[in-house]
Amino acid sequence: MRKLSKVITIFVMVFLSVALSFAQGSGDKLGDQSKLIKTLNKPLTFVFIPKVIHPWYDVVKEGALAAAEEFKKMGITVNIKFDAPTNADISEQMKKIEANISARPDGLAIAALDPATNTRLINDAIKAKLNVITFDTDAPNSNRPLYVGHSKDFQDGYDLGEYLAKLINYKGKVGILSGSLTAPNHVGRVKGFKEAIAKYPGISIVFDRPDNDDLQKAVELTENALQANSDLVGIFGCNASNPIGAARAVKAAGKTGKVHIVGMDDLPETLQLIKEGVIDATKAQRQWEIGYWAVKYLVAMNQNHTIPAVHETGSRLITKNDL
């Protein structure tokens, strides 16, 4: 009899503890969404793979480092590495991306040099269970969860076309330095510029030459264009280096103010030339923001937060009045 009561007591106690643990468990499952967020207990390493080594990306890096600094104050260590191919060559970039997938960083940000090829690589990396985003230039058909950057290239070219047209009173000869024929952002801006100019029958485009993002080449092309067209009134540069190249040639020829220059970005020399009045206006991307937000979102992804699919960082017009 005593034996039986012992057995029953044990049975009841086991039943109660099991029932209690279930009750506790079900209470956990419902509601508390904060449990979905993972705490980070190790330093994070993020790798950025730009299209090419270029001072433009140094500003992206500054933004990325600033975000890392903020996280440091919160007790989260983020290591940032930029690993750019030395040439803007897709097979070189592919090697970099593949090797960095091998290194298994906590986050991988890729600037698509060519969306068709990058799409497959990005999907490879995602299949390898890495956190992959695109920055600067997107690969929209890939499975990337997020793109951080400025994608309105056509609009930038169009706006600069409008600005230049107004400067030259909607008449005269203008020229285009068209950058790299294979870079979609250069191509987009040139297309936008041409479309804006096409509205004004008084303006004719007398030259359209690729400088391949090479400063010296841009200088030479502009020198030749000034020789061939003594009545040139405007030049459009579609990347960060060619408005500088055009400005150097125009300045050397003593045609500052006679030949108006509009172009892209805000490298230190560009700003100096705007101050001097050699360059009239540029559209500058806010690439510091690209680096900053890329790091913010990559940390968020590691914490299992939700993120947007696109973060548009925009661009702004810079003229002498802004400096």
Binding site: N87, A88, D89, I90, S91, E92, M94, D114, A116, T117, T119, R120, L181, T182
Partner: peptide, 16 residues
């Protein structure tokens, strides 16, 4: 072979 690897006929294939 690289065209196949790239999944596209890239104008820059081989340039480097």
């Amino acid at each position: 072979l690289l065209t196949s690897r790239m999944n596209a006929g890239q104008p820059t294939i081989g340039s480097s």
